[in-house]
Amino acid sequence: MARGNKAIKYAVLGVLLATTVACTTRYRNHGYVPTPAELEEVKLGVDTRDTIAEAIGSPSATGMLSDSSYVYVRSKVKHYGARAPEVVERQVVAIDFDSRGVARNLQYYSLEDGQAVPLTRRITDNGIQSSGFLRQLLSNIGNFDPSTITSQ
């Protein structure tokens, strides 16, 4: 009887430990934004696309409708248990260029300045119906053929 109680205690302890670890908050950083010191070095009206890319790095994206700006994006995403990830911090730096490729404007945005907008969204239909893992697993039980394992 003492062994059974000890096993139950270890099982409960294991479940509690797994639950605690699963519910730990994790933060992930994505992207790159130049530091304020690096942005101070950008000289509007003097620096070009090439000199800016060399000084502070390549941008995360270029202009959406034309090749008229560099966009640097950094996001901090909070992951907590089974909940959907939540963007808790976003920084965007946009450097606009004129037709000659010379820097004309530098803008800084944060998450508080607006709402999150996906730049692109691609959806591919994989043909799998929206059924749960257990349903997909159990639906294949009748399709198993043992002769496929032993045939050579």
Rank of each mutant, 00 (worst) to 15 (best):
N143P: 02
R135G: 06
T62H: 01
T51V: 10
N140V: 03
N29F: 03
S75H: 00
Q136E: 10
V71I: 14
T148S: 05
E89G: 00
N126S: 04
M1E: 15
R90A: 06
S75V: 04
A94S: 07
P85D: 06
S130N: 04
R3D: 15
V88S: 12
R100C: 10
T19E: 06
S147R: 04
N140F: 08
F97M: 10
P59N: 10
R83T: 10
G63Q: 02
G127I: 09
L119I: 07
A53V: 13
A55E: 12
A55S: 13
T148Q: 07
Y108S: 06
V87C: 02
Q152G: 09
K9C: 11
V42E: 06
D98L: 00
I95A: 12
Q129S: 07
F133T: 08
G101R: 09
R100H: 15
I8P: 04
A22D: 09
L134G: 08
G127N: 02
K6E: 14
T48W: 02
T150C: 00
L13N: 09
L106I: 04
S58C: 08
R122N: 10
F133W: 02
A61F: 07
N105Y: 06
N143R: 13
A84S: 11
T25C: 11
P118F: 01
P118K: 03
R74E: 14
S130A: 05
V88I: 15
L13Y: 15
N140S: 09
T20P: 10
D50P: 01
I8V: 14
K6V: 14
G31E: 11
L39C: 09
Y80I: 07
G81Q: 11
A84Q: 08
L106S: 05
A18M: 12
D113A: 00
A82P: 00
R121D: 03
I141F: 00
L16D: 11
I123T: 14
A37E: 15
Y32A: 12
S147A: 08
P146K: 08
A37P: 00
V15Y: 03
Y108M: 05
I141Q: 05
T48Q: 10
D47H: 03
R28E: 12
L16K: 12
E89K: 08
K6L: 14
P59G: 13
A37F: 00
N140C: 05
S69K: 07
F133R: 02
Y27V: 01
R104E: 05
P118N: 06
G132F: 01
V87I: 14
N140T: 06
I149F: 03
Y108C: 01
K76L: 13
E54M: 03
V33G: 02
K78I: 11
D125T: 07
A103K: 05
G127M: 03
